[in-house]
Design a protein around this nucleic acid. Structure first.
Lengths: 233, 233
DNA sequence: GATGAGAATATGCATGCACATAAAAACGTG
DNA sequence: CACGTTTTTATGTGCATGCATATTCTCATC
């Protein structure tokens, strides 16, 4: 067998990927060490390492010092969703995008959000309610609590041209967050917005962000009936 | 100012991350070149490169040859969900896991799935219906079409000890897939399973997998009322 | 002034080497 | 045999260097 020399790390990654996929190396099995593979492929150990690291990041193999590299027992059960940017999403559907601020008031945090959005007792919060339209039909309904102690300037913005979300994205960096998806009935309020029955199921996303443990904002986004969040992997 | 020498790529990554976060480098702005940063930090260019690559993978910066590295205009609107493994999820809640195969029949593909699961006209498909229990209460309801032309052996399995999902995970590698989440009402059938009203909103995930363009399986998973899919980032 | 060839340059990739680190394996001691 | 300690070893990381490649920039030419 002619061993074509594989010297680019992507080629090596592909070859290793193939071997895993074709069950040449069984799940759970330890694969040859970096040095062995480097010798086989006729390249430097660093290059093999690069390929293995990529596979490890993709979740196809697990690596441990001394123990070696082994094929992951179950393929990567991960999926990366691109959190949709409403404006882009609406325009991608060929619809005209617009938004409207319905409410803007300093308010306390509802008790049920304390766990997801741990602001202190005396925190100043701005509550905003925004509807996003696609061709004048409601597309998404957003209820947001924003920590004015963390982003004071947020309280001074008009939100007629820019949305609360866009302002925060551009002005309030965050280091960590939390995203939850679930299904809920439209209920009394949203059923009127979307002009559907109260029992209509809606796809809801809740997102909390924080900058170095300082809570920034918590938002609940209720999407129009029939909305689907989709990703390829 | 004492410039502490940062010589581990993680430290450099953190420092760069901080500068981006603190708006020392504005979004859209080009940051100093690798060589300059290497000199500043007193390390090799490779090490800076490693840190920058990590940031680029995280979506915080975008890099182009010659053009240089610049701070991403909008922070990474990505979230990685770990696709739950039912057994683990149930056991993590301290409940007893079990499952039951309800149905197993060769069947044609419903027309509405043709787009999501492009098997040819004469493909042999096995339809399976499985309920997963947490402490004897239904936790998830699974309807699955599996391409027997791609995984013939699948047709010979009993699925009393192992679930269709687990068997496929262990025996049918895939290279690409598609995941969709949405909300749906329980409807007539599922309302009886979950012992709730037909109008109860359920969280539903649909997943299609393929191995090198060969469709493997399509599955619809309807979760128990109140289920939430959650991720940190 | 427009245009295209070529130079300049920043990032990307590969290599060889040295050392750090974690974890398994071997060993020694009670 | 049970235990803690040392050795071994595979991966992890850092560095210096050279070349590859994609763009941008410059400049000569028309």
């Amino acid at each position: 067998m002619t061993v074509r020399e594989l010297n680019s790390w992507t080629e090596i990654r592909e070859e290793l990927h193939r071997r895993i996929n074709d069950r040449i190396w069984q799940p759970g099995e330890t694969i040859p060490g970096e040095a062995d593979l480097a010798e086989e492929f006729g390249c430097a150990r660093t290059t093999v390492s690069r390929a293995l690291r990529a596979l490890a990041e993709a979740g196809l193999v697990t690596r441990r010092r001394k123990a070696g590299t082994r094929v992951a027992v179950n393929p990567p059960h991960k999926a990366t969703f691109t959190i949709p940017i409403i404006r882009e999403e609406v325009e991608a559907r060929g619809a005209a995008y617009s938004h409207s601020l319905l409410k803007r008031v300093e308010a306390g945090l509802p008790p049920q959000l304390h766990a997801a959005f741990p602001v202190g007792e005396g925190a100043r919060l701005l509550f905003t309610e925004t509807v996003y339209f696609a061709d004048d039909r409601p597309f998404m309904f957003e209820e947001r609590y924003t920590n004015l102690d963390a982003v004071p300037e947020f309280g001074t913005i008009a939100f007629d041209l820019i949305t609360p979300n866009e302002w925060l994205v551009q002005n309030a960096p965050y280091t960590s967050g939390d995203l939850t998806c679930y299904a809920a009935n439209a209920g009394e309020r949203l059923s009127r917005f979307f002009e559907v029955a109260q029992e209509t199921p809606l796809f809801v996303m809740e997102r909390a962000t924080a900058n170095q443990k300082v809570p920034i904002t918590h938002v609940r986004m209720s999407y129009q009936p029939g909305y689907r969040l989709r990703t390829r992997f």
